[in-house]
């Protein structure tokens, strides 16, 4: 668990690798409260709107993966109450892909007597193509 004293610039976060399947995409979509069709759960709709022959995994799955490595690095007591994740999605993620999420500390700044730590976040697929990039933060005592 990271605390201010142990956090160094460039420090690597524990990475995770996730296999994306049709089941996991559909199960993620089933967590919602509206029973709606979209480009994640309806191939015909994805084909019509995007011209793709596949449905897309929701970008929020990548957000959740990124939040996982942040939580593991900072600890749930810190991250679940002060954490942020901000990602831009660069490429589609689809069933059959394997997404690896990694991160490294980019710096920190003092705020109200506490330290906000910034992390660069990267999501890459099995071909080494970047599917998302962005920043995470958390505030440590």
């Amino acid at each position: 668990m990271a605390s201010r004293t142990k956090i160094e610039p460039d420090q690597k976060l524990p990475s995770v690798t996730k296999a994306i399947t049709t089941d996991s995409i559909l199960q993620f979509e089933s967590c919602g409260i509206l029973d709606r069709e979209n480009i994640h759960n309806n191939p015909a709709l994805a084909a019509k709107r995007l011209g793709t022959t596949y449905t897309l995994a929701s970008g929020r799955m990548s957000i959740t993966f990124a939040a996982e490595i942040m939580r593991k690095f900072f600890g749930p007591e810190v991250f679940n109450h002060t954490g942020t994740v901000n990602l831009k999605f660069l490429r589609p993620v689809k069933a059959g892909d394997t997404i690896s999420v990694s991160g490294a500390v980019s710096g920190s700044e003092e705020i109200d007597g506490k330290t906000r730590v910034s992390v660069n976040l990267f999501c890459d697929n099995q071909d080494g193509n970047r599917t998302a990039v962005g920043i995470g933060t958390a505030v440590v005592e």
Partner: peptide, 10 residues
């Protein structure tokens, strides 16, 4: 500052 650098990165 770091917040601005983050903004520029995004």
């Amino acid at each position: 500052d770091l917040s601005k650098v983050n903004e520029l990165k995004m």
